[in-house]
Amino acid sequence: MWRAVASNALTLFIVILVAVAGVLAWGRQQYVAPGPLAEAICVRVERGASLAAVSRNLAAQGAVSDARIFRIGADYTDKAQGLKFGSYLVPAGASMEEIVDILTRGGQSTCGSEVNLRIGVATAEIILRELDPATSQFVEKARFDPAAGPTPQEYADAQSDSALRYRVTVAEGVTSWQVAEGLKRADFLGGEVAAVPAEGSLAPESYEVVKGQDRAALLAEMAARQDRILADLWAARAEGLPYDTPEEAMIMASIIEKETGIPDERGQVASVFVNRLKAGMRLQTDPTVIYGVTKGQGVLGRGLRQSELRGATPYNTYVIDGLPPTPIANPGRESIAAALNPEATDFLYFVADGTGGHIFARTLAEHNANVAKWRQIEAEQRRQQGAN
Rank of each mutant, 00 (worst) to 15 (best):
R3K: 14
I14Q: 11
V15M: 15
L17W: 15
G27M: 14
A38P: 13
R56F: 14
A59Q: 15
G62D: 02
R71W: 01
D78Y: 13
L83D: 01
A92F: 02
M96Q: 13
D101K: 14
I102V: 02
I102L: 01
R105V: 08
G106L: 06
S109V: 01
S113T: 03
G120R: 03
R129K: 14
T135E: 02
V139P: 06
A142K: 12
R143S: 12
R143N: 11
D145M: 12
A156L: 11
D157C: 04
A163W: 15
E172N: 09
Q178K: 13
A180S: 02
A180Y: 10
G190V: 09
G212V: 03
Q213T: 09
L219M: 10
A220I: 05
E221C: 03
E221K: 08
R225T: 00
R237Y: 03
E239N: 13
P246D: 09
A249Q: 05
E259N: 03
I262V: 15
E265D: 10
E265Y: 06
V274F: 05
V274K: 05
L283I: 00
Q284A: 08
T285A: 08
D286K: 06
P287M: 06
P287S: 02
G292I: 03
G298R: 11
T313I: 09
T313S: 14
Y315A: 07
T326Q: 00
P327A: 03
P327C: 00
A329L: 12
S335I: 00
S335Q: 05
F347C: 00
V351K: 13
V351I: 06
A352F: 14
F360S: 10
T363W: 05
A365M: 12
V371P: 02
K373E: 07
R375M: 09
R375F: 09
A379Y: 09
R382S: 09
G386F: 10
